[in-house]
Amino acid sequence: MCHDCSAEAPPQPPPSRRSVARLLVAGAGLSALAACTPEGPSPASSAPAGTAPASTSGSARAASGPPSASASASPTGAASAPPATSPATAAPAPPSAASRLSKQYSLTNPASPWLVVNKHRPLKPANYVPADLVQPRVALAVSGEAALLNRTTAAAAERMFAAAAAAGVTMTLASGYRSYATQTATYNGYVSARGRAAADTASARPGYSEHQTGWAFDIGDGGGACSFQPCFAEQPAAVWAKANAHHFGFVVRYPWMLHSITGYYYESWHLRYIGTEAATDMKKRGIGTLEEYFGLKAAPGYP
Rank of each mutant, 00 (worst) to 15 (best):
I219D: 05
F250L: 13
S203Q: 13
I219V: 02
E210W: 01
A298N: 14
M1L: 12
G249V: 14
A28D: 06
T184N: 09
H120E: 06
S260E: 01
S86R: 11
V252F: 07
S192E: 12
A26F: 03
L296C: 13
G224W: 13
F161L: 02
A165S: 09
Y190N: 01
Y302G: 05
A79V: 01
A91M: 07
Y266D: 08
S175P: 02
K103M: 08
S6D: 07
T56M: 14
Q229C: 02
C226W: 11
I287N: 00
F217I: 08
D200N: 07
A88L: 05
A81Q: 06
T89N: 07
R272H: 15
A52T: 13
P11W: 12
A164K: 05
Y190W: 10
G220W: 09
D218K: 00
E234A: 15
R121L: 07
V117I: 11
P136F: 02
G263A: 10
R151S: 15
E158Y: 12
Q104Y: 03
N244P: 02
K297C: 00
T184Y: 06
S86H: 00
M1I: 11
T89H: 11
A245R: 01
R272A: 12
E277Q: 14
R121T: 03
Y264F: 11
A60L: 12
N150D: 10
L258F: 03
R196T: 11
P66D: 06
N109F: 13
P48C: 02
T186V: 04
A79F: 06
E267I: 04
L33N: 06
K103T: 13
F217C: 12
Q135I: 09
N244D: 01
E292K: 08
A241L: 02
G40F: 02
A225M: 04
M1N: 10
E158P: 09
L148I: 06
A155N: 07
T280N: 13
A185M: 06
C226Y: 07
S16N: 08
S46L: 05
A111S: 07
E145G: 00
G176K: 06
P125Q: 11
L148W: 03
T85N: 02
S86K: 05
K103Y: 12
A44W: 10
L23S: 05
A32N: 08
P82Y: 00
V138W: 10
V116K: 09
V239P: 00
V117G: 04
Q12A: 15
R151E: 14
R137T: 14
K124E: 05
L30M: 15
A139R: 14
W215R: 12
G29F: 15
T152D: 02
F248I: 06
K119P: 00
G189D: 04
T184R: 15
A164N: 03
N244V: 04
Y187S: 08
E267T: 03
P15L: 13
L33A: 10
K124T: 03
P230I: 05
V191D: 09
H246Y: 15
T56P: 00
M257H: 10
S86C: 01
A97H: 10
V169C: 10
N109V: 09
A34H: 14
S16I: 05
D281S: 10
K124V: 03
R159W: 08
R137M: 03
